[in-house]
């Protein structure tokens, strides 16, 4: 089981959830106007990529997950990867 340590340690750690990751990656793909079915496929592939990366690690930070997911997403859709990486830097 991989624990996710939250940003700046302000909240308790939680178990790594592929569903949460899938939803955020899928939302980024949709914002890049990727069709819904393709967005889901890409989100599943990116989640599998992150899960593979995290399987030997006991604890990872949420920033690590974002970084690796961004790497994985860049392969499938650079536009969605940009959206995924920068959505907190808009305002």
């Amino acid at each position: 089981m991989t624990e996710v340590i939250k940003r700046n340690g302000s909240r308790n750690s939680e178990e790594f959830s592929t569903e949460k990751l899938c939803n955020s990656v899928s939302a980024a793909c949709l914002a890049a106007r990727t069709p819904e079915g393709e967005a889901r496929q890409v989100a599943d592939a990116v989640s599998a990529f992150v899960k593979e990366w995290s399987k030997d690690r006991h604890g990872v930070t949420s920033d690590d997950i974002r970084r690796i997911a961004h790497q994985g997403l860049s392969i499938f859709s650079p536009e969605a990867a940009y959206e995924y990486k920068n959505h907190k830097l808009v305002l």
């Binding site: 899928s26 939302a27 980024a28 949709l30 914002a31 106007r33 819904e36 959206e83 959505h87 808009v90 305002l91």
Partner: peptide
């Protein structure tokens, strides 16, 4: 650019939530 930023955020979340 603040209103434009807010408009892109609003659109991004609206599209992302299908």
């Amino acid at each position: 650019q603040m209103s434009v930023s807010m408009l892109t955020l609003l659109s991004s979340h609206t599209i992302g939530s299908k």
